[in-house]
Simulated assay, not measured.
Amino acid sequence: MVQQGDQWLGSAYVAPEVFALRPDYRALLILADGLIPGPSDEVTEKLLHAAEERAPADHPHVEAWREAFRAFGAKPQRTRPSVDALLRRVPQGLPRVDRLTDAYNAVSVLHALPIGGEDVDRYRGPLRLVRATGDEPFDTIVEGQPAVERPSPGEVVWRDDEGVTCRRWNWRQCVRTRLGPTTTRAVFILDALGPMDGAALAEAGSALVDALRATSPGVRLESRTLQPTA
């Protein structure tokens, strides 16, 4: 079990070497307690439908993320930033996953920024964004079977004390901390680069808060922004 509320948010950090790679990077963390998990429903269908109808055809923020991936050696044509992958699915229809995932995917598409959601109670120690050594374990599924992979040295990863929770900044989440049918406490990570200013990031955060309240009335929310110090 991780620390409570503001203590856990206060322990999160971005390593200096990540800010050295992209000095324009900021992460808005939203901690939600009292979530109501479950399958996709009418509320999330409405959110996803609105996102499909109003999704931007192109956005400079998506291209900035492709550039960020190239900067640490990833090929964005093969391992796309999460928002890039979602936007490419809009013409065929966004995936319907579950109430919590649908809510943040809808906001991600509408505001053209990567968003991830993680089960806080499955974390061990603080959340942090670092450049990998290459030794960290990453729990995943390969051909339907549990597997452990390792990130490439220098890859930008989110991690905790136990291992990598998300590879390549916002490309793929691990199995251990992903949202599930018993998730009631989660952290949502909104990733921003230069083309998205502070006002736009705050607007996306407000949209996510509204979506979470629509799916989980009574949810308790806290937030914190990680950014370079002046």
Rank of each mutant, 00 (worst) to 15 (best):
G5V: 08
Q7Y: 13
W8V: 06
V14S: 04
P16E: 08
P16F: 02
Y25K: 11
L29F: 01
D33R: 06
L35I: 01
D41V: 09
E42G: 12
E45R: 15
E45S: 15
E52T: 03
E53W: 07
E53S: 12
P56N: 02
H59I: 04
P60N: 00
H61Q: 11
V62L: 03
V62M: 03
A64G: 04
E67W: 12
A68S: 03
R78E: 13
S82F: 04
D84T: 05
L86S: 07
L87Y: 06
R89C: 07
Q92V: 10
P95T: 10
R96S: 12
D98W: 02
D98F: 04
R99T: 03
T101P: 08
N105D: 12
N105G: 02
S108C: 10
A112D: 10
L113F: 03
I115L: 13
G117L: 02
R122G: 05
G125R: 04
G125W: 05
R128K: 13
R128V: 12
A132H: 03
D135I: 08
D135K: 14
P137C: 07
V142L: 14
A147E: 11
E149Y: 08
P151R: 01
P153Y: 06
E155G: 00
D160I: 02
E162N: 10
E162L: 05
T165A: 06
C166M: 12
C166H: 06
R172C: 02
R172I: 06
Q173P: 11
T177I: 10
G180K: 11
P181S: 15
T184E: 12
R185I: 00
V187C: 09
D191A: 14
D191W: 10
A192G: 09
L193T: 09
G194L: 15
M196L: 09
D197I: 08
G198E: 15
A199W: 11
L201F: 03
A202L: 13
A202K: 08
S206N: 15
S216D: 04
G218F: 05
V219Q: 03
